[in-house]
Write a protein that binds this DNA or RNA. Structure first.
Lengths: 103, 103
DNA sequence: TCCAAAGTTTCTGAAACATCGAACTATGAA
DNA sequence: TTCATAGTTCGATGTTTCAGAAACTTTGGA
């Protein structure tokens, strides 16, 4: 039924399967929704997403790349900052995964 | 907003973040829903969940324990067989996680 | 030009994982 | 009692991951 993308989904779940990365991602989702409410694109640069995370720069950089490689977020450099955004398609795929069958 | 259980959720996502475990879990979810439709408890013994997975016994055993330790499934020995079932609360938590905020 | 800010790269070591073979433990027939 | 079934436990081994230190790269002021 879903053999083909099990691998991709597993990759995404794995990317979220680390407390720091999950928190990072959730912070971003939250920000995104705030900005969606305002009807414009969100501009979340990295440092803003570190709420309460006690890890330093290199590790953050590593985690962000992990999320990006898994296809969960998009990143774009803007001046000095790295702008992050959630990939809607990934979010939908994850929602669908845990939805009751056939729904 | 959800700092407390980020760790537990991360643990569950990590457990699902492996292709074989994810497939195992999805097979079980599917079985469960079939049986829910029939209005009775499902009886999924392990061997039945291995659809297409090319791993041998010790590895399967290890993965099942991983899913159980993460709180995603319950197991119960019944005669020679190990009966597995999805934990509804875990499924709900996962659904809620990817739901739009406030919903 | 010089500097600080915001990340990135590379390297390293410790810890955690995934998988398997071999030996083991029930359980339920024959 | 003897056997096959269905899993489990126990190393061993090779791989991956997490995190930080140090050094580097851009970029945007002063």
């Amino acid at each position: 039924m879903d053999r083909p993308d099990v691998k991709r989904l597993a990759r995404q779940l794995k990317a979220l399967g680390h407390p720091n990365r999950l928190q990072l991602f959730l912070n971003l989702v939250e920000e995104s929704q705030l900005d969606l409410a305002k009807g414009r694109t969100h501009d979340c640069f990295l440092a803003k997403l570190l709420g309460g995370l006690d890890i330093n720069a290199p590790t953050v950089s590593h985690h962000v790349k992990e999320l990006a490689d898994a296809g969960l977020i998009d990143t774009e450099r803007q001046g000095k900052q790295l702008i992050c955004s959630v990939r809607p398609d990934a979010l939908h795929a994850l929602r669908a995964l845990f939805e009751p069958a056939g729904t």
